[in-house]
Amino acid sequence: MILAAVVAAIIVTMGLALVRAGKGPTVFDRILALNMFGTKTVLLIAVIGFVTDRPDFLDLGLVYALINFIGVIAVLRFSKYGNFADPDRERTS
């Protein structure tokens, strides 16, 4: 019961993050909202794991936390350089 309320609260927070992601105005506001959405997803996975009595979900949460971090860094680099290549290094091939 209480965990269901927590799930609802997390979903409300994700909705608020989406509002900011939609409004912008800068690309960084959107990435910030994306990052927040990602950490809320990790929490949602963890809580739902307990609601459904399947703590194995935590492994997914752990992996999602990692992917979220790397994803945000990747999107930041993309927004800065316009591609995913390493800007400091000359192409040798």
């Binding site: 209480i2 965990l3 309320a5 927590v6 609260a9 997390i10 409300v12 927070t13 994700m14 909705g15 608020l16 993050a17 509002v19 900011r20 409004k23 910030l32 909202a33 927040m36 809320k40 929490l43 809580v47």
Partner: peptide, 17 residues
């Protein structure tokens, strides 16, 4: 603890908006 956490999460969401 989880309810306090949920409240802080929603407040943070309000803050970002």
């Amino acid at each position: 603890l989880v309810i306090a956490g949920a409240i802080f999460a929603v407040i943070g969401g309000i803050g970002i908006v």
